[in-house]
Structures are given as C-alpha cells and as structure tokens.
Simulated assay, not measured.
Amino acid sequence: MAMARRRLLALASQLQRRAPAPPATQPWRHATPRFLSSAASGPLDRLKTPPLARPAARNPASSPWDRFGGGQKRTMFIQTQSTPNPQSLMFYPGKPVMEVGSSDFPNARTAMTSPLAKALFAIDGVTRVFFGSDFVTVTKSEETSWDYLKPEVFAAIMDFYSSGQPLFLDSNSAAAMDTAIHEDDSEIVAMIKELLETRIRPAVQDDGGDIEYRGFDPETGIVKLKMQGACSGCPSSSVTLKSGIENMLMHYVPEVKGVEQELDGDEEAELAGAGQME
C-alpha cells in the first residue's frame, strides 16, 4: 500500500511539472479591443464613427446650377400653370413680381426697360411677356415646344432674382394704375373702374393675363379695354370680352352699351396678316 501511494504521488508531481503555467491575465477580459484603442489604425477603425454621421459639406462651386453662372446654389422653386391660351404659360417664382398693377410686353422692343422681360425675349420662340402680381406669363410661337422653352424660362427667371437687379430700369416705366379713380372722373367712370378692379381683373389674372381700362365714351356708351398677357390673342378672349366683361358692366352700369377691345399697332398688323392668310 505504501509503495502504491508513493507511485501515485510521483505521477502527480510529473504531471504538474509538465502542465503550462496559467496566464496571469485573461486577454479577453482585460485587454483593450483593437478597434477601440486610440492607437488602432486597422479597417475596424470605421466603427469609431457614428453610423449616422453627416458627410462633409459639398463645395458650392461644384453645384450643377453653376452653368447658370456665379457658382451660387439656387434654391428657387418655380411652379407653372396652364392658361386658356395654349401658347401661354404662367410661371410662379414664389416671390412678388409687380407690387402695383401689371405690365405687358407685346414685343421685344417694349421690353428694353425691364431686365427680366429682355432676358425672356432673348429666348428663341418667346413672343410676349406679361408681369402680374406674383407670376410671369410667357407666350410662345406655335412652332416652339414648351419642352424646349420651359427650362430656358426657368433659368432666365432664376438668374434675374439672383442678380438683384430691379424689375424696371426706370421707375416711370412701371405700369400706371389705369383703374385708379381720379377726382375728375364721372360717377359712371368711377363705377366702371371699380368693377374692373374688384370683380373683373382678379378673374382675368387667374388666367395669366390682365385687362387695361382705355376709356369710356358717354355718347356711345362704349367702354374701351385692352387685353394683356395670355388673354391677348387667346382664342377665347373675344368670348370673355363680350359674354363675361360686357355683360357684367352692362348689368351694374346701365349707361354702358358695349365693350370694345383696343389694339396696338403691332396687334392690328398681326390680325390683318392672319385674316389675309385665311
């Protein structure tokens, strides 16, 4: 028994000498993970960046709008609206256009006083420009497509508002308040102007145009008006003038016997040419 016990003790002593010494520390308990160490520079370093970190700000000079000049990023959002005239389209820049009244540019010659109107007429295919309170109406030629024209108009409007230029180079070029009531106006004329300003003009402006008071003949009872913007040359303008405006004026002002449209020289020539072609 004593001999067997001594052999067991000797075997245990040998096994103890051969076994590796346990490490003083456990690396998975005390060592700092590599990707959390400030000295780490491996691929796992990306875990130190928050997952929702914002990318670095882009250089404004690389904006796609730079081709329109200045390297300034544009934030204007322009909306469009159709009109009864298929050749006219309303553009809403989201900013005031005319503070008072409206302004019509039937040709490029009349647009020399306005940088915006001049820029729009520089676009091939634009035949008329009109400024309303918060919109710009552009009329095109029949052979020009809106698919081509709209991006050019967008660019011209954005360039104008970013340039800081005034709408008119000469303040006297702005449209006069044709419906303003003066002291020397008769009661009939005052009533006509009030109806035009409060009842008729807002409805016409909704269609991208305007109507200008040109006078009243008390002897014949004829009111002379001028259609502007999209309403000028619109196929339904004569119907609007007679069925809508004339009926309303004659209803509220019995002295009014009719309404006539007054045309400029260029418009008369265009109508005469159209009649000869037909």
Results as ranks from 00 to 15, higher is better:
24 A>D: 07
67 R>P: 00
30 H>P: 00
46 R>C: 08
110 T>Y: 10
241 L>R: 03
236 S>Y: 06
139 T>R: 13
63 S>F: 08
45 D>Q: 13
54 R>E: 12
90 M>N: 06
269 A>E: 06
90 M>K: 14
86 P>M: 13
102 S>K: 05
7 R>I: 08
3 M>A: 13
173 S>T: 04
250 M>I: 15
162 S>H: 08
278 E>T: 03
40 A>T: 03
278 E>Q: 11
154 F>R: 04
126 V>R: 11
201 R>E: 06
277 M>G: 04
24 A>W: 06
27 P>M: 03
162 S>P: 00
270 E>I: 02
257 K>M: 12
189 V>A: 04
155 A>R: 14
60 P>H: 07
47 L>T: 09
193 K>P: 07
152 E>T: 00
91 F>W: 07
43 P>V: 02
49 T>Y: 05
64 P>T: 09
191 M>Q: 04
149 L>Y: 12
81 Q>I: 00
178 D>K: 05
112 M>Q: 15
171 S>V: 03
259 V>C: 04
52 L>M: 13
234 C>Q: 07
204 V>R: 04
42 G>F: 11
103 S>F: 13
34 R>K: 12
165 Q>A: 14
154 F>V: 02
52 L>V: 10
195 L>K: 10
174 A>N: 01
231 C>S: 11
105 F>V: 02
63 S>K: 08
33 P>E: 12
250 M>C: 13
40 A>P: 02
183 E>Q: 13
177 M>E: 11
44 L>D: 15
181 I>K: 12
252 Y>M: 10
98 M>V: 04
260 E>M: 10
134 D>P: 01
118 K>Q: 12
265 G>N: 06
164 G>E: 02
77 F>T: 15
50 P>N: 04
125 G>H: 12
65 W>Y: 12
208 G>W: 03
155 A>S: 14
273 G>E: 05
271 L>Q: 06
181 I>M: 08
8 L>W: 06
53 A>E: 10
161 Y>V: 05
224 K>I: 03
107 N>F: 03
253 V>G: 02
238 S>N: 13
22 P>H: 12
225 L>C: 10
190 A>G: 10
91 F>A: 02
124 D>T: 11
93 P>K: 15
135 F>A: 09
269 A>P: 04
133 S>R: 11
63 S>I: 09
139 T>A: 09
227 M>L: 15
263 L>T: 02
187 E>M: 13
56 A>S: 08
219 E>Q: 15
147 D>W: 06
238 S>F: 00
69 G>Y: 06
204 V>E: 09
62 S>C: 07
25 T>Y: 12
135 F>V: 09
228 Q>R: 13
253 V>N: 03
82 S>G: 07
